[in-house]
Amino acid sequence: MKKVHPSFAAGDAAMPAVELSELDRRLINALQGGFPLSERPFQAAAETLGVAEATLIARIETLLQTGVLTRFGPLFNADRMGGINVLAAMSLPKSDFERIAAFVSAQPEIAHNYRREHALNLWFVGAAESPDKVEAVFDYIESVSGYPVYRFPKEREFFVELKLEA
């Protein structure tokens, strides 16, 4: 039941910073959590922002369309639903980097893949419905590439309350 699909511009590093209106900023700063579970939640949220319900709905729609927002709604914790994500890294020589990075990205179970500046220069997340499936993908990458995959499974997650300031 769990599959990974490509999504839109979320996290696209090529995306330029966007010029935001004062209302957009207040909206983003106020609504990164705590959206009401009530009959007219937009109306309740709009009141605290001092705008009309329809204005708030239209702004959220526009911010989604322009890619300023990647999502609007509940943010799920995949770990609590039986799925598993495992961080892993490889140390690749320059001559092999492009080929193996592309091979890693091509695996459907690999959700994120980044180059980072370190001896461990390729960092990725394997996501699947079971630890065995993630392990199998990492094993496959090792056997095809000939390079070790270093696993960094979460041993403990610490509570965070990040809010990005717009």
Partner: peptide, 17 residues
């Protein structure tokens, strides 16, 4: 129960600079 972390807008980091 923590299955939902929060409900709201999820901004694109890059769009916010």
């Amino acid at each position: 129960s923590g299955v939902i972390r929060r409900i709201g807008v999820v901004p694109n980091h890059y769009a916010l600079g």
